[in-house]
Amino acid sequence: MAKNIAIRIFRFYWDGFRSMTIGKTLWMIILIKLFVMFVILKIFFFPNYLGKFDNSSDKQEYVSGELIQRAINP
């Protein structure tokens, strides 16, 4: 029963994607965009700035230091 439903859902999506016309171009654009965003932009241009610290305690120290120092040395 569950397998039957899963197959029907799969076929629903499969037939839907196969019958797309303009959708294929859109999917291509979406995939290129996601590649550019997650592989190029995220890795090379947008690393997590606080990711260089190993743990939360180091991040807390860093941010508190930043917040305190910037008030003294704006």
């Binding site: 997590n48 700035y49 807390q60 917040l67």
Partner: peptide, 14 residues
């Protein structure tokens, strides 16, 4: 959200 993590990291933590 990427920009929050990179450019505005103090804000993101805060």
């Amino acid at each position: 959200e990427f920009e929050f993590g990179t450019n505005w990291s103090n804000y993101s933590w805060f």
